[in-house]
């Protein structure tokens, strides 16, 4: 099972006129079970792209198929929205209900599940994001701290038990602790329920340390689609489209310049330290 994107092209209209395409002939497949990191400069089409994964924007040219369900069919769109959960930027701004539990239940209610199932899912989702249902269920979402609000909003998507979880900069504006909590949550989700994660992020360090695949978008087209090691070894190319590289890669580049033969594909902290450990053992 997978998400197949075939020749997807999309242009916004303004004042009755079509603008330059925001997405230009995208073709690739997102395999189940991966942690896909999407990177690209602001305006590269990342946010527009993820709105195609659950049919918020219509497929005008090309197709998007989620587990074989074609998103250009209106009747299949509802089914896909239960499969693909989307967490937008600053998701806490979507909280609306009187209590956290009610808000988390919004998705399952729209799926017309029975009460028992809804309650079970609300409890499960709140546990997942680390909000103890006993303590938080009946509190107003507007009384929570920033990080808690963010996690409550994510619980509101997880309660739909999505097979594919799409997140648009889920750590934006959070403090370092909040960032680590969200990343840990995503890792846990993937390990426990096999949920496929698709995450847009500006933090190359986070992408390098967590993603299994990286998609680089540039002017609405696929620039690279590969493992983080392979993507980040093209440092110059990335820098030419206004992207940075992970900190570890930067150190490797500086070391390379000084004649140290450390492979340029090292982008994870662990791999970097491991390389030095072996180096030390040799010496």
């Amino acid at each position: 099972m997978s998400i197949e994107i075939n020749h997807l092209t999309f242009a916004y209209t303004q004042g009755g006129k079509k603008l330059e395409p925001t997405l230009n002939d995208l073709t690739f497949t997102i395999e189940e079970g991966h942690f896909l990191g999407i990177i690209g400069h602001t305006g590269s089409g990342k946010s527009t792209f993820i709105k195609h994964l659950n049919g918020l924007l219509p497929c005008e040219k090309g197709t998007v198929k989620v587990d074989g369900l074609d998103l250009s069919e209106k009747s299949e769109r509802k089914k896909v929205r239960a499969l693909v959960g989307v967490v937008f930027q600053y998701p806490e701004y979507q909280l609306f209900a009187e209590t956290v539990a009610e808000d988390v239940a919004f998705g399952p209610k729209n799926m017309k599940l029975d009460e028992e199932e809804i309650n079970a899912r609300v409890t499960e989702a709140m546990h997942l994001v680390g909000l103890d249902p006993d303590r938080f269920s009946s509190r107003s979402p507007f009384d929570l701290s920033g990080g808690e609000r963010r996690r409550a909003a994510i619980a509101g998507v997880l309660s739909m038990r999505p097979k594919y979880l799409v997140l648009d900069e889920p750590m934006a504006g959070l403090d370092p602790l909040g960032r680590r909590e969200i990343l840990a949550l995503l890792e846990k989700l993937r390990a426990e329920s096999g949920c496929t994660i698709i995450m847009i992020s500006h933090s190359m360090d986070d992408i390098a340390n967590h993603a299994t695949q990286v998609l680089v978008l540039e002017k609405g087209a696929v620039c690279m689609y590969d493992t983080p090691e392979n993507v980040f070894s093209h440092a110059e190319e990335l820098q030419s489209i206004g992207l940075s590289v992970p900190n570890v890669t930067q150190i490797c580049i500086e070391l390379n310049k000084r004649g140290v033969a450390i492979p340029s594909s090292i982008c994870k902290e662990d791999a970097f330290i491991e390389w030095f450990r072996e180096e030390k053992a040799h010496a």
Binding site: L56, Q94, F106, N110, M111
Partner: peptide, 16 residues
């Protein structure tokens, strides 16, 4: 802009 974003988010949660 903001109402647009919220609308999208709620639609993603199955709102009709």
């Amino acid at each position: 802009d903001e109402s647009d974003k919220i609308r999208n988010a709620q639609m993603s949660r199955g709102a009709d």
